[in-house]
Every structure is written in structure tokens, then in C-alpha cells.
Amino acid sequence: MSQLSPFHIAIPVHNLETCRIFYRDILNCEEGRSSDHWVDFNFFGHQLVIHFKEKSLEAETINEVDGKHVPVPHYGVVLPWDNFHAFAEELKLKNIKFIIEPYVRFEGLVGEQATMFFKDPAGNALEFKAFKDRSQLFAK
């Protein structure tokens, strides 16, 4: 497959209007169709739908990666290297509370990548990353 196709993801939110504002105004995602129970967004070229669901009391799960607590599940996108760093700075200016601050993994090695984690207002974990050499996205 030479070009990745856009994905579609639907996530639960217990605070539809608060999350609508977050995705639209903080992450700068263009809003699409909506109803009183869901909202579509252009999530960096992919379709993200936030659906209203009562708040869950399910405990968060984490995995240890590089000595950091990575939330599971999480979702996100791979951005171009320069876009990632500009976006990270923009998020800092908007006072995003990071779970994992932006940093570079595997520096100077195969698969060198920048990554950061934070949550939306409903507690859904997001990861944004970028590869120094995007052709190494699936390199071993």
C-alpha cells in the first residue's frame, strides 16, 4: 500500500459540548456533521466522531514504555516532523496538561520519533507523534 487511507474512529465522551470546543478550538479540527448526541471532526485528515456516553468509572490502564506511563487505550496521528514541533508549542501556549511531555525517542537510531500524550476533557488519551524519517514508520 503506497498511501495510507484516512481512518474513522468513534470515541465516547460524557461532555459533548466541552469536547466539541476542545477538538474545534484547541486542536483546530474542522467540525462537520453533528446531532445532539454526536459530532464529526476532520482530525488531521481523518474522521473522528465524538459520541455522547454516560461517564464510565472504568479504571485507567497503563503500559510502561521508556520509563513513562503510556495510557491504554489511546489514539492519535503521525504528523510531519516540523508540524509536530509547531503543534507541541501551540499546545503548550494553550496550557495543555501533558501526560507525557513532547520528547524524542530513539534519537539518532532507526525509528527516531517525537511523541507526546495528553487527554481530552472526557479523559480519552491522545498520542501525537512524528518520525524524523517518515519512511521508518514501520521499521524494525
Rank of each mutant, 00 (worst) to 15 (best):
A10I: 02
I50G: 02
V110N: 06
F98R: 08
K129I: 00
A122T: 07
L91H: 05
Y103S: 14
W81R: 02
R33S: 15
L137S: 00
N15K: 11
Q3W: 08
G111P: 02
S5D: 04
N63F: 09
E127C: 06
E127T: 09
I50W: 07
L109P: 11
D66R: 04
R33V: 09
V65M: 04
E101R: 12
E64D: 13
S34E: 07
F87E: 01
V77K: 08
I26G: 00
T115I: 07
F87V: 09
R24W: 00
F41Y: 06
E107S: 08
L91M: 13
I9E: 03
I96H: 11
K55P: 04
D25T: 12
V110E: 07
H69T: 09
N15C: 10
F7H: 00
N28W: 11
F128D: 00
K94R: 10
V70L: 13
E60N: 14
Q47R: 14
E89Q: 15
S135N: 11
V65P: 02
F52M: 04
V39P: 06
K68T: 05
N15M: 02
V77P: 15
G111V: 12
H14L: 09
H37M: 13
F128W: 06
G67H: 02
S2M: 06
F44R: 10
I99W: 03
I96K: 09
H8G: 02
S56V: 10
F106G: 05
C19I: 03
V77R: 12
R105N: 12
G45C: 07
V78M: 02
K132I: 09
N124H: 05
A122C: 13
I99G: 11
W38L: 07
V72Q: 12
I99D: 14
